[in-house]
């Protein structure tokens, strides 16, 4: 084999190996980037789900009040029933809450003494996953003047 051909084969071999290394490097980089993107996306979705849960939990329309002073961590059952009825009857009204609750399902459940449930808001999407946040709360019954145990369940659809 002439010397020039040998040199050429050697150069081609080096280029081939170099290209393989570059391709491997690029594949690793892409995989790494994809994982980073996935983490960032997940963090963002979790952040939004927490925001929605907090908004639902501290909705001023539902807060208990005594002598015009808000009671922490408490929902007034009469206010809850009224808002739930209004939102179920008028779907256009749900749009007003879309800015706050986006695509989610918000249900208030009474756990003690008797089990009861009020659906507040529902707007679901076709997304496969959902993030569930339960927030325990006191439910005040102003008629019987008693506090019941309940939970605000927020299911967020990213």
């Amino acid at each position: 084999m002439p010397r020039a051909q040998l040199k050429m084969a050697e150069t081609l071999g080096v280029i081939f190996v170099f290209l393989i290394l570059v391709i491997f490097g690029f594949m690793f980089y892409a995989k790494f980037q994809r994982a980073t993107f996935k983490t960032v996306l997940q963090e963002e979705q979790e952040k939004r789900s927490v925001e929605v849960a907090q908004r639902a939990f501290s909705l001023p329309e539902l807060q208990c009040a005594a002598n015009n002073i808000m009671i922490d961590n408490c929902i007034d059952i009469l206010k809850l029933e009224a808002l739930s009825r209004m939102l179920q009857a008028d779907s256009a009204l749900q749009l007003i809450y879309y800015d706050s609750f986006e695509s989610s399902r918000i249900v208030v459940k009474q756990l003690y003494p008797a089990r009861q449930e009020w659906k507040l808001y529902e707007r679901t999407t076709n997304s496969s996953g959902s993030l569930f946040t339960p927030l325990p709360v006191s439910l005040y019954d102003p008629v019987a003047k008693r506090y019941n145990m309940g939970v605000v369940e927020v299911t967020y659809y990213p």
Binding site: F32, A35, T39, Q42, E46, D72, P134, P136
Partner: peptide, 29 residues
């Protein structure tokens, strides 16, 4: 980098809220 711990933002929030809200609501019930 691939095996990094998943985000704990929601978990931390939920646990903090759970502990404080459950006890508060429970004692008031």
């Amino acid at each position: 980098n691939l095996n990094k711990e998943p985000s704990t933002l929601k978990k931390t929030f939920t646990q903090t809220q759970l502990a404080s809200n459950i006890l508060g609501s429970f004692l008031r019930t």
